[in-house]
Design a protein around this nucleic acid. Structure first.
Lengths: 194, 194
DNA sequence: GCAGAACTATGCACCGAGTGCAAATATGTG
DNA sequence: CACATATTTGCACTCGGTGCATAGTTCTGC
């Protein structure tokens, strides 16, 4: 009668997302740093130890599945037409990130990353990981020969694009969600290339 | 007989740099993460508590006076001719960072930042701080009107330049100090603007 | 030189994040 | 039902970092 192969996996995901929701509520109330893991665990009705079975770190509550997201961006990037320019293809791939379905949540998210240094740091590390994932395809599009380790120029290219993304999100966040983040991104890119 | 006004300050600086030297030795032997603050304090002949009077965090041992360095870069940037382009002026300002007097130490430094995630994170946060410091002048050079908070485009510009710097240093580090980091930086910038 | 202010060193107790281990419990499969 | 496999939980521990109080040292004005 198992509608999906894994019931275990389903409940696990459900619990995981409920913990995250509880945590986001607490973060909104008291801030990220002022909220302890013990509080979150208590509020979610699990033990402190179990919490760490669901999330490796407190930051993971906010920056969920970064690796998976990075890979899906990479997949979109690699699916773009081979002759498309690096900027254009990368721009299209990064649009994957626009969840769109809940801008209020996105804003809360961005605000958290701004206020808590440890979150900012983790986010930047996440970008670093994406950089490694996306660099090979960009390297090809830049007309650079394929190499074992990504060419520094490709890495710089991706890193700069992620900088533009980050700056756009931050400006959008400072403006309380007013304005178009995509336009901000494009303006930032244009400023670099002028 | 006080050759300089502050004997206190002098000894303080001496102790501070000796702690840092001791720590760098331990880091080289066992790695950053495997070395505890207690070990460093013991090796430096001070108490654990005193250590934290000299360095706020373990990472500060490696990433010394980031704020001061950022301000000196900003000063150089602002001293560049007003009509110089943003890229050129920023490039010149970032050359401040070439300590040059001890490339081996620089390499050890860069290696540490590569291996220890917490150090990488801190370094990126340092860049974030520099971004805020350098953005206003860049904003002017880009022909953008002055604003209260830095324009996102100026921030993206600085952030991209720092990305290039970082990528260049990393490539230089991966090549064991062979090659010219300045050339790598210029190539990275060229790749963005092509 | 001396008295008091200001700084420094240290110990101690504490917090919060994160981990390893082992026992108990729940859940899936034959 | 019985067995294997996850999951939950508690416990003890490490490590980075902070607040506080106390003892000692240096600097300053007289």
């Amino acid at each position: 009668m198992a509608s999906t192969p894994n019931l275990r996996e389903r409940t696990r995901r459900a619990v995981r997302s409920e913990i995250a929701a509880t945590a986001m509520r607490l973060f909104a109330e008291q801030g990220f740093e002022a909220t302890t893991v013990d509080q979150i665990a208590a509020a979610a009705g699990i033990s402190r130890r179990s919490f760490f079975h669901y999330f490796g770190t407190k930051e993971d509550l906010v920056l969920g599945d970064t690796a998976g997201l990075g890979e899906s961006i990479r997949d979109v990037l690699e699916a773009r037409p081979a002759e498309e320019s690096a900027w254009s293809a990368l721009r299209a791939a990064l649009m994957t990130l626009r969840s769109g379905d809940d801008p209020a949540a996105d804003l809360a998210h961005a605000r958290l990353c701004r206020e808590a240094p440890s979150l900012r740091a983790r986010k930047l590390e996440k970008y670093l990981h994406w950089q490694e994932l996306l660099a090979p395809d960009v390297q090809r599009r830049l007309g650079l020969p394929a190499t074992e380790a990504p060419d520094p120029r490709a890495r710089a290219f991706v890193s700069a694009a992620l900088s533009c993304l980050d700056v756009a999100v931050e400006a959008w966040c400072e403006a309380d969600g007013e304005g178009d983040p995509v336009r901000l991104f494009d303006e930032a890119v244009a400023a670099l290339r002028a």
